[in-house]
Amino acid sequence: MSVLDPTVPPADPAGEIDADERRRRRRTRFEKVGRWILPILTLALGLWLWDRIVVWNAIPHYILPGPGLVFQTLIADWPILFEALLVTLQITLMALAVAVLGGVGLAVLFSQSRWMEMSFYPYAVILQVTPIVAIAPLIFIYVESRLAGLLLCAWLVAFFPVLSNTTLGLNSADHNLRDLFRIYGATRWQKLRFLQLPSALPYFLGGLRIAGGLSLIGAVVAEYVAGTGGLKSGLAFRILEAGYRLNIPRMFAALILIAATGVVIFAGLSFLSHMLLRKWHESALKREA
């Protein structure tokens, strides 16, 4: 097998370990531990500095709360914040789902018809490069349902990476394999199903990871613009509201929740990507250095 797990060095009864090998093992051990320890140390250091700056300068909590107070607020306001988190998360995940359907659907359509691609791809680019904050107010004027408006905004932000990456992937199938499919008289559908879609999978998953973060951003930005009309309020609205009331600790608490959500989404999608590709794709393989 060409993959060796570098994290589990085999025993060495025969004295086969030379200086190179020892150095490699030290490096892998260091990387394995450092990957977790170092960011945690940085975080601790940052929190400590933050706390000291607040204490030493006697900054009032309505200007800059210390990390302890933010944490207390997070616990105390958990019922409100958690409910808001669920709303934001719901919009985000729905938008991501629609972005995947729309992005992959359009990419497949474009790959099947040059006409479609030439006619519509430029407009997909235009939608992508126009800032969402500039479009969002218009959307909320014309779209009756607030949920639909929020979804539309988040989708507009998130679908493009899926579309462009999947398009690239569908077109990147190996040329000899394409010839082979032609020689065996494969139908369009067979070529799509057995050749293009599997070739596009790694590209799609790369786009998906970007889209995950973007749909969260889209959901938050859209809520800033839309305000809360009838619907339950999400994290963005809680931040705005807390800002009006000068409840700075709650603003920080909500911000932390949003950031944590983004990280969890990214990690989840990375894990999904790893699971789908680990058997065959270069990006998921660990090799000996």
């Binding site: 190996d174 394999l177 008289g185 599997p198």
Partner: peptide, 28 residues
């Protein structure tokens, strides 16, 4: 009625050996 072998093995990396060999029959 053809079989082809190129200079590169031209296998589908996402499929096992057996599934790669199955391909021409699968397409039928």
């Amino acid at each position: 009625d053809l079989g082809v072998v190129f200079q590169e093995p031209t296998l589908m990396p996402w499929a096992t050996v057996a599934h790669n060999v199955w391909l021409p029959l699968r397409l039928r």
